[in-house]
């Protein structure tokens, strides 16, 4: 198991021959509150080589549990969220799959990542054998309301994982703009 730092990548299929499916787990720990809390929502966005989402149907989250092609699906909540990725089924036009956690933009004080004490993303086999883990660095998060935790991406014939930890101050709207997708 490897612990990554922001920007680092790890070869998945090249170093694990026969790996055709992976489980991506995301989790976080927040400061408890009796008042309205920031509600973190994980999401996977399937992108072409220009970095744009293929379409809204290739955006996978709790209310759209499976991608249009069936290759990415929300599977369970053993971490805060577990996402199954069938690498063999991912369409050829998908160059990367970004894993994002956004603060739900509720009009009644949505909050930010400031209440998040720790967060991680990990990639494991379908048997839940962990391959890589990234502990997301959380400092100065007072105005962060969406964060790209990491991404799976194609590298020649293989798949790799890159740790990111890139925060947005523009929330889900900023994410949608970056990925050129309607939400």
């Amino acid at each position: 198991m490897a612990n990554l730092v922001p920007g680092a990548n790890a070869a998945l299929t090249a170093e694990n021959r026969g790996l055709s499916k992976v489980l991506v787990g995301l989790g976080w720990d927040t400061v408890p509150s009796r008042g309205p809390v920031a509600e973190l929502v994980p999401m996977a966005v399937m992108c072409n080589d220009a970095g744009s989402a293929l379409s809204g149907e290739y955006l996978v989250f709790f209310n759209q549990l499976v991608s249009a092609d069936g290759s990415v699906s929300f599977a369970g909540e053993d971490d805060q969220e577990q996402i199954d990725v069938d690498l063999a089924l991912v369409p050829a036009e998908v160059a990367k799959i970004a894993f994002i956690v956004y603060v739900d933009p509720d009009v009644r004080g949505p909050g930010t990542f400031s209440a998040v004490r720790s967060a991680y993303i990990r990639v494991a086999t379908v048997e839940n054998r962990e391959l890589v883990r990234f502990e997301v660095p959380l400092s100065s998060n007072d105005n962060i309301n969406a964060m790209m935790f990491g991404e799976l991406y194609r590298h020649r014939e293989d798949w790799k994982f890159r740790a990111l930890g890139q925060g947005y101050t523009t929330g889900l709207a900023g994410v949608a703009k970056d990925f050129r997708v309607d939400v």
């Binding site: 759209q64 739900d104 509720d106 939400v183």
Partner: peptide, 12 residues
Amino acid sequence: LNGRQSAIGTLI
């Protein structure tokens, strides 16, 4: 509404 519109933010 589609699946995204039905589940993001607040319906006002």
